[in-house]
Design a protein around this nucleic acid. Structure first.
Lengths: 192, 192
DNA sequence: CGCATTTATCAACGCTTGTTGACTTTCACT
DNA sequence: AGTGAAAGTCAACAAGCGTTGATAAATGCG
C-alpha cells in the first residue's frame, strides 16, 4: 500500500501484461490444450509459478486472455444494401488486429467454456445490434452471419485454406458482403 | 495363413472395427488431444495395448479414423441456378451421416496433419467437380464454398450456436443455397 | 491331444502436465 | 541502515499421457 490512489504502475503490471500477451499468442497458435503454462511462461521470460500467482489457474488465464469485445460501430447510417460489406469489413480489421479472436476460436472447438464465450459474443453483441435495425428473426440472422464469418476465419486464419488465406481484404468484402447483406435484411426465404 | 484367399473375417477384424468406431466418436466429441487412447479403448471395451497393436500410434489411429470421402454426386444434370441448394443438401446428409467429418473438423483446428487432410478434401474433391462445371477461378469458388460450409458445421455441430443448431435441414438449404449458388457460378465481383 | 499362431492382458516405463509451498531476492519507505 | 511487503526462483508433487515388452489365454490345424 505504498502507492497513491490512481497511480497504479506496480512492477508486477508489466509481468502480468507480458503473461497475457504470451498467453494470447500461444492459445491462438496452439489451442487450449496444447498451449502449456510452461511454454507461455517461457515466452514471457518468467517462471511458470508466476503465471499461477497472478492468474490462479490455466482456465482463469485463458478467461483473461480471451476477453474480447467486437466493438461493433453504429450501423444506422449505412445504406441497407451495403450493410454486409460494412460488417465484414469491420470483422476483418477486428480479426487481424489482435490474436484474441484466433485464440478464442481455436480454443472454442475443444473447450466448452471457450465455446460458451464465443456463443455469447454473437448473441450479446451482434444480435442486439440487429434488433436496432428492426429486422425480423434477429437471432437467426445473427447466427447466419456467425456461420459465414467464423467459417471465413476458420479457413483464412486457422486452416490456411488456399486461396482464401491469400485473398485481399477487398476481395473478401466483395465476395462475402452481398451474402451478409442478404442474411441481415432479406425477407425470410419461403420454403415448399 | 490359415485362411483362404478372399475370405477375410479374422476374429480381430471386429476388434479393429470397434476401435475405429470408438475413435471416431471420441475424436469427434473431444478433439485430437483430449481424446485419449485409454478412453477410446475403454469405449471399445478392450485393452489400450490393442489399439497400439492394430494401429501403431495415436497419430496413425487418427489417420485411419479420419479417412473420408465427400462422395460428391454428378451435378451436371442440376439446373445452374439450383447448384448451391444441391451442394448444401448433399453436405448436410454427409455431415449428419457419420462422425468422421466432425472428428476431422475438431482435430483440424489444433492438429496440422488433420488440417492438411481437411484442405485436401476441398482441393481434391470439390475443386475438380467445379472444374467440370467450367467456371472460372474454381479454386477460389471451392474455398468460398468451404468457408460457408465449414462455418455452418462449426456453428451447428461443434459450437452449438442457437438457433443455427436447431434449424431444419430445409431452412438451412433455403438460407445457404443461394449463397453457394452465387459462390459457384456468379461472375467475379468487380471491385473499385 | 499337442503345437504354433493369433489375440488379449497386465504392469510398468519415461515423459509432460498443472499446480504447490518453501525459499530468496528486490525494493520502497521510515 | 533496517524492515516488511512485494516479486521472483526453485524443486518437487500427483496425475495423466502414449507407448512397450513380457506373459497369459484362446484358437485353428496336424
Amino acid at each position: 500500500m505504498a502507492y497513491a490512489q490512481g497511480m497504479a504502475e506496480r512492477k508486477s503490471d508489466r509481468t502480468r501484461a507480458a503473461i497475457l500477451a504470451a498467453a494470447r499468442e500461444r492459445f491462438g497458435a496452439d489451442g487450449y490444450e496444447r498451449a502449456t503454462i510452461r511454454a507461455i511462461a517461457a515466452d514471457a521470460a518468467i517462471d511458470p509459478a508466476m503465471v499461477m500467482r497472478y492468474y490462479g489457474s490455466k482456465e482463469k488465464l485463458f478467461a483473461a486472455a480471451a476477453e474480447f469485445d467486437l466493438q461493433l460501430p453504429d450501423f444506422s447510417g449505412v445504406p441497407r444494401d451495403q450493410l454486409g460489406e460494412a460488417v465484414i469489413r469491420h470483422f476483418l480489421t477486428r480479426w487481424e488486429g489482435d490474436d484474441t479472436l484466433r485464440a478464442l476460436l481455436r480454443a472454442a472447438v475443444t473447450n466448452e467454456s471457450a465455446a460458451e464465450r464465443m456463443r455469447q459474443l454473437f448473441a450479446q453483441q451482434l444480435a442486439p445490434t440487429l434488433r436496432e435495425l428492426a429486422v425480423d428473426e434477429p437471432a437467426v440472422r445473427a447466427g447466419l452471419v456467425a456461420s459465414q464469418t467464423l467459417g471465413l476465419a476458420l479457413c483464412r486464419y486457422i486452416l490456411d485454406v488456399e486461396p482464401i488465406a491469400r485473398l485481399s481484404p477487398d476481395d473478401v468484402v466483395a465476395w462475402l458482403g452481398p451474402t451478409l447483406t442478404r442474411y441481415l435484411i432479406a425477407p425470410l426465404p419461403d420454403r415448399p
